[in-house]
């Protein structure tokens, strides 16, 4: 366990969380107006209708895969009789398909962004940086799935290295040694992932934090009282409401 390991797997994750949380709070308080999907569907919809759902739904499956792989200990899947080999097969098939969809989706979206004039005009430098990190994270992740399951190269059981480290982060006792034993692909993917979460609050990705799930439960028609009128402002001395 070297000093670099401690820095990368014991310090950086917490720095990332601090920036992610405080950055999101800051952005929400000071830039609510900028908190949007910044959709470009108005300019171009043909490619978007293929690329965007492919990317987003693929990503949702990928997220579920990450949650299962990282949070559920190996002993639990052993207990229900799922063998190591069987687990890897399903992870490879589901994760591979979802990751591939995500990559193709984001590929279509990047292509669209570059070739459709109005969409490219509306692309900021911030967007470009975000796309680089996002695509890198997806590619590295897909590489770990393909390489780590033993199709090419040696099989690596990340559930004995990465996952224990990930869970140990939450109890504030990072298991740096476990992560240190993981292979290079996983280390790169994890680092890029942490970079992505670090820049997250400062990019258009924040729209994911306001996924409108409450829509399922609210009444259709929303009524709101007129606000910011004089009545809601603090009253001046001597003009207090009577009765």
């Amino acid at each position: 366990m070297s000093g670099v390991d401690v820095l990368l797997w014991g310090v950086l994750p917490y720095v990332m969380v601090v920036i992610l949380v405080s950055g999101t709070i800051w952005r929400y308080r000071y830039d609510k107006f900028g908190w949007t999907t910044r959709s470009s569907e108005l300019y171009e919809s043909r490619l978007l209708r293929i690329g965007s759902p492919l990317f987003h739904f693929g990503l949702l499956v990928v997220i579920i895969g990450h949650v299962i792989g990282l949070l559920i200990p190996e002993s639990w899947t052993d207990a229900i009789g799922l063998s190591e080999h069987a687990y890897h097969i399903q992870a490879l098939v589901l994760g591979g398909i979802a990751g591939f969809c995500t990559l193709v989706g984001v590929g279509i979206l990047v292509y669209r962004r570059r070739t459709s004039g109005p969409v490219f005009m509306a692309t900021t430098r911030n967007d470009k940086l975000m796309y680089v990190v996002l695509v890198a994270a997806i590619v590295a992740g897909l590489a770990t799935t393909v390489l780590g399951t033993g199709i090419i190269g040696e099989q690596h059981s990340y559930r004995e290295t990465v996952s224990p480290w990930f869970r140990s982060l939450f109890v504030l006792q990072p298991d740096v040694a476990s992560m240190g034993q993981s292979n290079l692909e996983f280390k790169i993917h994890t680092l890029i992932g942490m970079l992505l979460f670090t820049i997250w609050p400062f990019t258009r990705l924040v729209h994911a934090f306001t996924a409108p799930l409450a829509y399922l439960f609210r009444p259709y028609i929303v009524y709101r009282s007129r606000d910011a009128g004089p009545a809601t402002r603090p009253t001046r001395r001597g003009w207090d409401r009577v009765g």
């Binding site: 609510k32 949007t36 829509y215 929303v222 709101r224």
Partner: peptide, 28 residues
């Protein structure tokens, strides 16, 4: 208003004017 997933659009209770809360709209 019924279509807005974010709940950013509303009908003002006092005078029925339909408005978009620019801080709450997420551009869906």
């Amino acid at each position: 208003v019924a279509s807005c997933p974010s709940g950013a659009m509303y009908k003002r209770a006092e005078d029925g004017i339909v408005l978009v809360d620019q801080d709450q709209c997420r551009g869906w």
